[in-house]
Amino acid sequence: KELVLVLYDYQEKSPREVTVKKGDILTLLNSTNKDAWKVEVDDRQGFIPAAYLKKL
């Protein structure tokens, strides 16, 4: 599985998104959309803007 590093805090703005903190390391589920990547956070799945993430 692929991991990503969170570069900036992000507060979810819709039910399809998830809230993350800078420095979190998350499982990347889908990065086919260049604008928003799907990740898993504490058994929740949701989207975060790709600009907030860096592949490890």
Rank of each mutant, 00 (worst) to 15 (best):
Y52R: 03
E12R: 14
K54N: 04
S31M: 08
A51T: 11
V4C: 11
P15N: 10
Q45V: 15
D42L: 12
V41G: 06
Y52S: 04
S31I: 05
D9W: 05
L3C: 14
T19R: 06
L28K: 01
A50I: 08
K21Q: 08
Y10R: 03
L7T: 03
V39P: 00
T27P: 08
V4W: 04
Y10V: 02
L53Y: 02
I48N: 02
L7Y: 03
Y52V: 12
I25N: 00
P49S: 05
V20N: 00
P49K: 05
R44C: 07
P15S: 11
S14I: 05
T32H: 11
K38F: 15
Y10G: 01
G46Q: 07
K1L: 12
A51Y: 13
Q45W: 11
E2Y: 12
D42Q: 11
F47A: 03
I48T: 02
V18Q: 03
F47I: 06
Y10M: 02
P49A: 05
P49G: 04
N33L: 09
R16D: 15
V20T: 03
L3N: 05
Q11S: 12
T19F: 06
L28C: 08
D35T: 12
E40Q: 15
V4L: 03
K1S: 09
K21F: 10
L5R: 06
K38P: 00
K21C: 11
K55N: 05
A50Y: 04
V6T: 02
E17Y: 07
K55L: 13
L29V: 11
Y52I: 13
Q45D: 06
D43C: 13
K55Q: 07
R44G: 06
N33H: 10
D9Q: 03
V41R: 09
L29I: 14
E17F: 08
K21R: 13
D24L: 09
K21L: 06
Y8S: 09
L29R: 03
D24A: 12
V41C: 09
T19S: 14
L53S: 00
K1C: 14
E2W: 13
T27Q: 09
T32N: 13
T32Y: 10
Y10L: 02
I48V: 15
L7F: 02
W37V: 02
G46N: 03
K55T: 06
Q45P: 06
F47M: 07
P49F: 07
L7W: 03
S31E: 10
V20L: 04
A51P: 08
L56S: 02
A36K: 12
N30S: 14
L28V: 06
L56E: 02
Y8T: 08
E2N: 12
W37Q: 00
V6S: 01
L7D: 01
R16E: 14
D9F: 04
L29Q: 02
D9R: 03
R44M: 07
Y8I: 09
I25H: 02
P15D: 12
Q11M: 12
P49T: 04
L56W: 08
G46R: 05
Y8H: 12
F47S: 04
I48Q: 02
Y8D: 10
Q11F: 14
G23H: 04
V6R: 01
K21A: 07
L3D: 02
E2M: 14
K1W: 11
R16W: 15
G46Y: 15
A50V: 11
S31R: 07
V39Q: 01
L5H: 02
P49C: 08
V6L: 02
V18H: 04
E40D: 05
W37Y: 05
Y10S: 02
D35W: 15
K22V: 05
P15L: 09
K22D: 01
L28S: 01
W37S: 00
V39T: 00
K1R: 14
L29P: 00
W37N: 01
I48A: 05
F47K: 02
V4R: 01
F47E: 06
L56I: 13
D42S: 10
T19D: 03
I48H: 02
A51K: 15
N33A: 09
K54S: 09
K55A: 06
S31L: 04
L53K: 01
G46M: 15
T27H: 10
E17K: 05
G46T: 10
L29D: 00
K13G: 08
T32K: 11
L53H: 01
L7V: 06
E2Q: 14
L3M: 11
S14R: 07
K54I: 12
V6C: 06
L3Q: 10
E17Q: 07
A36R: 14
W37G: 00
G46I: 15
E40R: 11
F47Y: 14
D9N: 08
R44L: 06
E40V: 11
T32I: 09
K21Y: 10
A50N: 04
D35V: 11
K34P: 15
V6D: 00
V4H: 00
V41Y: 09
L7S: 02
A50H: 05
I25E: 01
